[in-house]
Computed example of a mutant assay.
Amino acid sequence: MISVIVPVYNVEEYLEECLESIQKQTYTDIEVILVNDGSTDGSKEICERYCQMDSRFKLINQENQGQSAARNNGVSVSTGEYITFVDSDDVISSKYVEILNRYMTEEIDLVECEYRAVRSVFNKLSQKENIQIVFEGNSEEAIIESCNYGLSYSPVVKLYRRNLLENFPFLNGVIFEDIYHGVGILKFIRKMVKIDYVGYHYRERSNSTMHRKFSEKNLDVFISSDKLVELFSSDKKLLPYIGKFLVQIVTTHHNYFTEKINPYQSMYEEKLKQYVAIVEESPEVARSSKMIRMYKLAPSLYLRYTFPFVYKTWGRLKHLKALVIKGE
């Protein structure tokens, strides 16, 4: 059996579409654990209705504790040999569970697929059947690939062997916990695969973690980042890759909140300096990072001016290239 765990919090607008996509899975030996995280809208009633319609659906109600607690609680009551997470405003393809399970062999602990945020693109690509393995490797190889952004650090788009999640739970009480968990869990796998199948539609919303107004809670990004450094602190080979990953995390996170973070500017600069120093313990890894090279040109200007300028210029050039290709 495969357990599908869905944390639910105030998503009545999207929840039915999400649960419908799970209910219509071609792989039917599933249990669906709905964890209502103290919703104050009609989400609980929608969950109850699906539980009445389909005996595979089970509802857990908890006071609002956040997604990590919801996922951990879902794991604790689940019974499947394998586990996958679906966010309650997202949609999965009808063959999502079937196809991920197809690649879960005796030696594999984790299978990952692709996602798309644009619904029309997802609808088209999710029909693809000539699936290829784009990555297959052991723990060390997977960590390096993840830190080079070849693998996702999101908890979704993945099928896990359950003991991974039992032994390495999500961090409770912090946001951006996926930074720590998504890379950290790779330390404990034997082998994983990534396939080029687009099986997951990720819905981008204006009130998501990376789009809401900046608050001190957003500084949790450093809690997760520092715990990841601590986890790999004794591994001299992999730690520089972790540093490289965190340089990009801090850079992009700062860029999202550029107008809001003035009171915390010095903290971002200090953390970035720490993570750059970790990368530079390996000259080879440092040379492979464009961000490190940009940072070294003008460290004091990097977050405020250098990266935003380069990022915006690169975006404009990319747009112009697209227009030239189209002949416009």
Rank of each mutant, 00 (worst) to 15 (best):
F245D: 08
N262S: 12
F257H: 08
I223Y: 10
F222Q: 03
F257W: 12
K187W: 01
V247H: 00
P240Y: 08
P240N: 05
E204R: 14
K191W: 03
I185C: 09
Q248R: 11
H211T: 12
Y264T: 00
L246E: 00
D196F: 10
K194H: 10
I189G: 02
P240T: 02
I195L: 09
I249N: 04
P263G: 05
I223V: 15
Y197C: 05
S225F: 09
I242Q: 11
G243I: 05
E230H: 11
E230Q: 12
T251S: 08
N207I: 11
T209L: 14
N255K: 08
H201E: 10
R190G: 10
S208T: 11
F222H: 04
F257C: 06
Y197G: 02
K236F: 06
H254F: 15
D220G: 08
Y256Q: 13
P263S: 07
R203M: 11
P263M: 03
D235T: 04
S225V: 04
T258A: 15
T252A: 03
P240C: 00
S206Y: 13
S225K: 01
I261A: 03
K213N: 10
K236R: 10
P263L: 06
L239N: 06
T251K: 01
V250E: 02
S215R: 07
V221S: 07
D220Y: 07
Y256T: 12
E204T: 14
T251M: 09
